[in-house]
Amino acid sequence: MHAAERPAPALIRIRNLAKSYRRGGQVVPVLTDITLDVRAGDFLGLMGPSGSGKSTLLNLIAGIDKPDAGEILFDGVDITRLGERELADWRAGTVGFVFQFYNLMPVLTAYENVELPLTLTRLSRRERRAHVEAALALVGLSERMAHYPAELSGGQQQRVAIARAIISDPRLIVADEPTGDLDRHSAAEVLALMDRLNTDLGKTIVMVTHDRRAAERAHAIMYLDKGELSTAADVHERSVR
């Protein structure tokens, strides 16, 4: 979505994507013929009314749902054709998730929650520790490593979730209403953090939000209404490193 001087190649190419759900015997189309490019390093905001298909599109991009038709090419690989196991491995190495309600494991400490994706890698315990400590330092929670989620505020929990999302150095971060459950101050902290991930670490971010202030952080905003991508508006452009 960069309209910048140095356009990066499309990291995600979505073509003619369609998705419908069956409700009470009726087929309800959610997405119809979506075509979209997301370039490496983009920060894309997806907005639209409830039920417009924002989260469905995000889930499809993140590889946790399958479309009825169309293709999603991630760096040239059509993830809609990947099998269950391949898709799980792809997600583990490529996508970081930030959820509205954080989705941390209540029985694991902040450290263990952040370490969780790394248990899927071949890194040694010592290497994992170095990565986790760096990630928690990045989100400003080095002092809270041993705390359980219930001992942290909502904003802190979301920062732990962000640390978990970046721990395996994914190229794509998907965020579904990351500030939807936070007060204004915590939301601002989380958005600032997401901004840093994009600008400092070059992460490609796709974020679903209802929050105009959150959307303003994005390089571009796409509107979804009744399953169709209606407009795209550059909110503000930034120079990319």
Partner: peptide, 9 residues
């Protein structure tokens, strides 16, 4: 759901 999304099979 979160564990599966993170990549656990």
């Amino acid at each position: 759901g979160a564990l599966r999304a993170l990549g656990f099979r």
